[in-house]
Amino acid sequence: MTASRPDHRALAEALRYRVLEGRGVSDHATRKAAADRAAGGPAMAVPYDDLASQIGECSHRVTDAQVQGVVQAAGSENAAFEIIAAAAMGAGLMRWRLALKALDEASDASAGN
């Protein structure tokens, strides 16, 4: 029996839904704002903004102080982890959407020829 091809769109949506809309320790609004910020979206409140934008733009320059600031503000390491995961996912899924758009448009153009 041949295994079926992965449904990447469904798997990406399941990840997005779980991280941004599922139950967590941090609040949904902060997770959503971190995901948007890391994808180039609007600024967040201090100290979240520094960390989320750094994760989006230049994650290897994240500092201990940026992470500790979010642990303090969010109230726990667990909540900080959720915000870090949301920011990382936001930057990755922004690329996923833009790359799929390019692929879909090229496929449509190719089919039209």
């Binding site: 890391a38 960390l51 290897h60 920011a87 990382a88 930057a91 899924l93 690329r95």
Partner: peptide, 10 residues
Amino acid sequence: NIVVRYANAL
């Protein structure tokens, strides 16, 4: 692009 960001941030 997701994995590297949390690996670097953490």
